[in-house]
Amino acid sequence: MTRSSRMVGAARMAMVTLALLLAASPAFAQLRLDVTRGKVEPMPIAIPPFAGGGADESKAGRDIAQVVSADLERSGLFRPLDPQSFIQNVSAGEGPRFADWRQINAQALVTGSMQGQGDGRYRVEFRLWDVGAEQQLAGFAYTTTRQNWRRIAHIIADEIYKRITGEDGYFDTRIVYIAESGPAERREKRLALMDQDGANHQYLTDGRALVLTPRFSPSAQEITYLSYAGGTPRVYLRNIDSGQQEALGDFPGMTFAPRFSPSAQEITYLSYAGGTPRVYLRNIDSGQQEALGDFPGMTFAPRFSPEGNRIVFSRTQNGASNIYALDLRTRQPLRLTDGNAIDTTPSYSPD
C-alpha cells in the first residue's frame, strides 16, 4: 500500500472553504500530549454529536462526531469518553459547562454544529476546548458539499491532533493499492482507492489488465501505476478526480519505474523504446517529454533530488554499473562512483 502525501491538491480543496473562529491566546493553550516519550497515556476527550437544526443536519452531526472519535482513538493517543456519560447536552450556540465535563474526567472537549445552506451545502463549525483551563484552543468553520462530510470529519481530527500533540495529523489521507480477487486460476488485480480508515472504497480499473505498483504524486491528485493493457507493461498517469489517464510515452516498448518530482509538476521514468532502457522526463501539465542524455549502455532507477533540480540514476556498461547525477538546469551528468563494482538503485536522503 502507498499512503498519499498530506499535501492536498487544489481540486480537493475546491470542495471546502475554511474560516477561522475566535480562538484563545496561545498563553492559555497549555493542553498538550508529549508524543516523544516512550509511553503516553491516552488523553480523555469528550466528543458529543455536533448540533444540527434539522433531521439531516443532526444525523450528519452524529456521523461527523463518530468519525472524529474513531480517528483519534485509532491514533492510540486519545481515549474518547462514552457519550452515555455526558452530563451536558450541548446545543448550537451554547458554551460548555466545564464543571460538568470535569466531573466525567474529560481533559479536552470538542463541540460543533451543522447548518444547511441555501445552496444545498453544509456549514460545519467546531471548537476544541481545554476543560481544565476553561479555554478554547482552536475553532474553525468549513463550508462543503453534503456528500463531503466524512472528509470534513477527518480534517477536524487532523486539527485536534495537531493542536494537542504539536504534530501534523494523518487522517485526511487516502491509500491507493492493488485489490486482488477471483478464483486462483483467474485472479484479477484492480487499482483501488480508499480513505485511510477504509471508507469511500472505489475501484479505478476494471480488472481486465494486470496492474501493479501504484504511487501517489506529492499533490495527491495523480497516481502512476504499471499496466499490462495490450500485453506490454506501460506506466500510466491517472488524475483521481477527473478519471482521465494516459500512458507515458508515445512510442512502442515498455515503460516502468516512474518517480514524481517534489513539486508534482514532472515525472521521470524508464523506457525501453529502441530496446535499451533510457531515462525520460515528462512535464505533467504540458505533456512534453524528452530523453535525458545520450549515454552508451543502459540506465536504471531514476530518482529526483529533494529540491527537484537533479536526477540520480545508475548506468550499466561493459559489466560495471556506476551512479550518475544529472543537473536538470544544465543537462550535464556527473559520475559519482567509479570502478568495476556494481553500484545500483541510488536515492537521495530527504534533506
Rank of each mutant, 00 (worst) to 15 (best):
F28N: 14
P302V: 03
G53C: 01
S347T: 14
D327W: 08
F313D: 11
I104R: 00
A11S: 09
G132E: 13
G275L: 05
P96D: 02
L281S: 03
I87W: 06
E180C: 04
E125S: 14
Q147W: 08
T143W: 06
R127E: 14
G297Y: 02
V131A: 00
V67F: 09
P26Y: 14
T268I: 02
A70T: 13
S25P: 05
G38A: 12
D285R: 15
Y280L: 13
V8P: 00
L204N: 03
Q202A: 12
F28L: 13
Q202I: 08
E180N: 07
R97G: 07
S314Y: 07
A29N: 15
P49S: 06
Q30E: 15
R315Y: 06
Q115H: 09
W129Y: 06
G182Q: 06
T205W: 02
K59W: 08
Q196E: 11
Y142A: 02
L20W: 05
L292R: 00
T344E: 14
A11D: 09
E185D: 14
V176M: 10
A46L: 06
V131P: 00
L237V: 05
T145A: 14
S271D: 00
E167H: 05
N148H: 11
F171R: 02
M298I: 04
L193F: 15
D158F: 01
V131L: 01
G120Q: 08
Y122N: 01
R62Q: 13
E185G: 00
K162R: 15
P83Y: 08
I160E: 05
N105H: 12
A264L: 07
